[in-house]
């Protein structure tokens, strides 16, 4: 009997270490990804200089000597993301407040399904839809239709599910007493939403926004089909634009492995990676303060 339990304890240790190894894989993956991207990026960053790489406005990888400046792509990513937020955030906020506060339960369920479906549609399908439907419409405003505007319309739709589901969850997490208190004091439902519910869910809503930004900055296949992809800072929202992600996919196909151009594509990836990591950290900071606040609220 004693021997039996001893054996089980042994097994328990073996199992625990096995499980630990599995769990450690995600840590190893993050480390490996970081190391690989930066190792491959190093030659181009060293040759061009980090500042000239980031602030250089000329991307001419096949010239002699080649020029690797990705400012147009950084600006491009910022433009399409900013405009996507401008379109997507109001609609997303309205939808999430609607779902959390005033939708009849059945309508809310239908909306939630719709949001889940939107979230599941592959990005290449969004891009194809944009190419077939949005590009011709934008074309009527002037230009080729492949533009900052087109890309950001598609991105606005793509970030909608993230914004809606995360802000809705944040709004629903607001303690019911807050709302009851406000209504009992004679505030209207709308006043309660604006002055109590939304401020209380602020950090969650911010986290939703930052998640949406991350999704838009990192999106590739949808953008590549509709943005025109010219590596120049666009002069208007009807002009073509190339984002960092697109820069990688577009040229990776024909680049000579080991060349400086190849390394410059990884360096583009490295800059994108740094962007995303900064966003990840800010989400962590936002959700952390929210968690602590809720804990404190429960204590009182």
């Amino acid at each position: 009997m004693k021997q039996g339990t001893a054996r089980w304890r042994m097994n328990d240790k073996v199992i625990r270490s096995l499980l630990f190894v599995c769990a450690a894989i995600s840590v190893v993956a993050v480390l490996l990804i970081t190391v690989m991207i930066f190792v491959e990026a190093f030659p181009a960053l060293k040759e061009t200089g980090v500042w000239d790489f980031i602030a250089g406005t000329k991307w001419k990888p096949t010239d002699t000597p080649p020029q690797f400046g990705i400012l147009p792509m950084i600006v491009g990513s910022v433009y399409v993301t900013g405009l996507a937020l401008l379109f997507g955030l109001p609609i997303g906020m309205a939808t999430s407040i609607f779902m959390a506060e005033i939708a009849p339960p059945k309508v809310a369920v239908v909306l939630r399904r719709a949001i889940e479906i939107l979230a599941g549609i592959p990005s290449v399908v969004y891009g194809f839809f944009g190419l077939m439907m949005v590009v011709p419409i934008v074309q009527t405003l002037g230009g080729t239709g492949m533009s900052v505007l087109t890309a950001s319309i598609i991105l606005a739709v793509m970030i909608l599910p993230t914004i809606v589901s995360v802000s809705e969850a944040a709004l629903r997490a607001v303690p019911a007493e807050y709302k009851e208190g406000s209504l009992a004091l004679g505030a209207s439902h709308w006043q309660t939403i604006v002055r109590v519910q939304v401020p209380a869910a602020k950090s969650g809503i911010l986290a939703a926004t930052v998640l949406g930004i991350g999704r838009a900055v990192g999106e590739t296949m949808a953008v590549i089909l509709v943005a025109g992809n010219i590596p120049v800072i666009p002069e208007s929202i009807l002009k073509a634009v190339r984002t960092m992600t697109v820069n990688i996919v577009l040229e990776m196909g024909y680049v000579q492995p080991g060349s400086l151009h190849y390394s410059a594509l990884f360096a583009t990836g490295a800059v994108l990676f740094v962007f995303i990591m900064l966003l990840n950290f800010s989400i962590r900071a936002l959700t952390k303060t929210r968690g602590e606040k809720q804990k404190n609220a429960k204590k009182h």
Binding site: A29, L211, G218, T220, V249, G269, I276
Partner: peptide, 8 residues
């Protein structure tokens, strides 16, 4: 990991 874009 969940936040890293596909292209990376």
């Amino acid at each position: 990991l969940a936040g890293i874009p596909s292209i990376i």
